[in-house]
Structure formats: C-alpha cells, structure tokens
C-alpha cells in the first residue's frame, strides 16, 4: 500500500460566474520515504494541487470537484478529501507537514520561536511546555542552528532568510509527519543557501523515512534529489516517472521544452530556449492537448479536440500522448 494514493484530483475555482479549472484529473502515488518532484511553469497547478490535498484553499471559491486521496495512517487509510474540518486538522502537521516558499513571511513576527515551535507539539502530542521546548531545541540543533537553547527565545526578525527556512523545517519535522510538502522551499533564498537547505532537508527526511513532495522550478534539484518526477502543465500531468529517466530522455514535448530551458555549462554564451507565451487560460479547460494552445507550437489534429490519454512507456514511466511540435530554437530566439 502506498503512503499516499491520489486518484483523479480535480480542483476548480468559481469566480464571478466563471470556472477556473486549476487542477484536472491528477493521479499519482507516493511511497514511504520517497521524494517526488513536481515541476511546471508558474500557473500550472502545482501549488493548488498540494494545497488541495490538505484542504488549505479557501472554499468557496475553491472546490474539490472530484477525486480521492488516500493517506495511510496508524488508524488505517484516510481519504483526505472527505475528512471533516476537525479531522483534517489532526492530519495537518501530524501526518503531513508543509513548508512554504517565502521564509520571511512564514513565521509570525510577533511571537517568539519558542511559542511557534511548541504549538504543534502541545496540540498534537499533548506535551507540557517544558518538554515541548526541549524537543524544539533539539530540532533546531538538528537543522544546524547553533546556540539553540538561547536562540529559541528570539523573535523571527533576528534570523536571516535561510535561518528562518531552517526554523520552518524544524517546526514541521518536529511533529514527525509521514509526508512533507515543500512548496518551492528555496526559491526565495540565494544559491549557496539553497543547496545547504536542500541537503539538510534531504538528510533529515531520509533518516526519518519521511516522504517528500517537492514542488520546484529547478530541474537540477529534481535530477539530483528526487526519486521520481511529475511534470504538470495546465493543471494536468504531462509526464511522470523516474527522475533520472525523465531528465535524460524526456518523452513529452513540454518536458523537453522545460529541460532545454535549463542553463548548462556546455551551452555557455548561448541564449536559452524559452517557449513563447504563457500557459493557457484555464477558464476554458483545454479540450485537447493543452500544449497546442501555446503560440508557435504546431502539430497534428489528432489531439485537438480530444484529451490525450496517459500512456505507459517504461517501468513506472507514463507520458500523456502528444503530437505537438515545439517551435525551432531560431523562431523562439527571434520572437
């Protein structure tokens, strides 16, 4: 039994009579201790998908129109999408943790770390304040904050961005979740700090056998740190499979475009390949291959009016059928 089994997750936003189809029929599984990368452009539905699992979206306007998400817990499988508000609160933090993109706003500036770090422990595990503080100090030390016993009593503004992200990681891992959702955890940090934080996060999760859903723009991160990767576009899964396979031999044209947009040392001095235009307007759900709506992309009529299916192309490797042809590099450069 996988730790998390998501089937047909569909999330929509009802806005002024219009419906935004943010996540369409997303399915994937996540095993215990596995790191799954989720990549895609901004607006491709990655974050909405993750927030849907924890039901953090404001409802209305958001609504989870279909799907199920079975999470294995000590008391048997739970369908996250069916739980009551009170039940999902017990899952949040305890079973699934989440860290966010911007560490500058993810800690409350008015509360000491000691308060923020111990809240979850006291709520979920019923620890005394003293015991909770002791555990919190240990957690801070594990993420590499020196002099934690003293600094746990400081306020967030006394820490730099990288330090705050470590505090966030400590705060979420303290509750020993089975799954950690990291929504672009290092986007707001500079490159050297990014690396340290990802190393630390990876090591801690490996030790605790915590599964990680790593949402990122950075394909380098995916290749190095994820077991598997899921590529999303227009709220749909384009390709999912072992990250090494996908990074070396991407099958879907969209994945290929993403990989070609990566800077690399061998292409020094050359402009990067970037698909012109933006992801499609999801107020009208793309009926066919969503990539065909992108300017410059050409291709056959096979998937113009019918949604292409996901096809298995290798061990654990699925690709959405597509006949889209990416614009040539010269065309993109001149655009």
């Amino acid at each position: 039994m996988p730790l998390l089994d998501v089937q047909g997750l569909t999330t929509r936003f009802a806005m002024r009579g219009e419906t935004v189809h943010a996540v369409e029929d997303v399915s994937f599984v996540l095993e215990e201790g596995e790191v799954l990368g989720v990549v895609g452009e901004s607006g491709s539905g990655k974050s909405v998908m993750a927030s849907s699992l924890l039901r953090l979206l404001p409802m209305p306007p958001a609504q989870i129109a279909a799907g199920q998400a079975l999470l294995q817990t000590e008391s048997g499988p739970l369908d996250l999408l069916q739980l009551s508000e009170r039940e999902i609160r017990r899952v949040r933090g305890r079973e699934i943790g989440m860290i966010f993109q911007d560490p500058m706003t993810s800690l409350n500036p008015y509360l000491r770390l000691s308060t923020q770090l111990t809240e979850g422990l006291r709520r979920h595990y019923g620890l005394s304040k003293r015991a909770a503080i002791e555990q919190a100090i240990e957690a801070l030390e594990r993420v590499g904050i020196s002099d934690a016993a003293k600094r746990i009593h400081s306020h967030p503004h006394e820490f730099s961005g990288g330090m705050r992200q470590r505090v966030m990681i400590a705060m979420m891992l303290l509750l020993q979740p089975r799954l950690l959702i990291a929504d672009e955890p290092t986007t707001a940090l500079d490159v050297t700090v990014q690396r340290q934080i990802l190393d630390q996060l990876g090591a801690l999760c490996r030790d605790a056998r915590t599964a990680v859903l790593l949402i990122t723009h950075d394909l380098g991160v995916v290749a190095q740190r994820c077991h598997r990767v899921m590529v999303m576009y227009a709220g749909q899964v384009m390709e999912i499979g072992p990250s090494q396979v996908i990074c070396e031999a991407p099958r879907h044209p969209y994945t290929q475009a993403l990989l070609r947009a990566r800077p690399s040392a061998s292409l020094r001095g050359q402009p990067l390949y970037a698909l012109p235009g933006n992801p499609p307007d999801l107020r009208e759900p793309p009926v066919g291959d969503p990539l065909l709506l992108r300017p410059g992309v050409t291709g056959g009529d096979r998937w113009r009016t019918e949604r292409p299916p996901l096809e298995q192309v290798g061990a654990g490797h699925w690709v959405r059928a597509s006949e889209a042809v990416l614009p040539a590099w010269e065309e993109v450069r001149d655009a």
């Binding site: 609160r89 989440m98 800690l107 409350n108 809240e119 509750l175």
Partner: peptide, 26 residues
C-alpha cells in the same frame, strides 16, 4: 494572507486560536 497563518493552520491550529494567538498581536 501571510504564510504564517497558513503555517499555523498546517500545525493543526483551530481558527479561534489563530485569530487570538497569531493575528491579534500583529
């Protein structure tokens, strides 16, 4: 809309505690 409210929700805090402990001091 700030992330620390989301973080508090992620720790399983109920709404009244979020209002009282996290928002009002701000």
């Amino acid at each position: 809309e700030r992330d620390f409210v989301l973080a508090a929700r992620m720790l399983g805090q109920p709404w009244y505690r979020i209002v009282w402990r996290h928002l009002l001091p701000n």
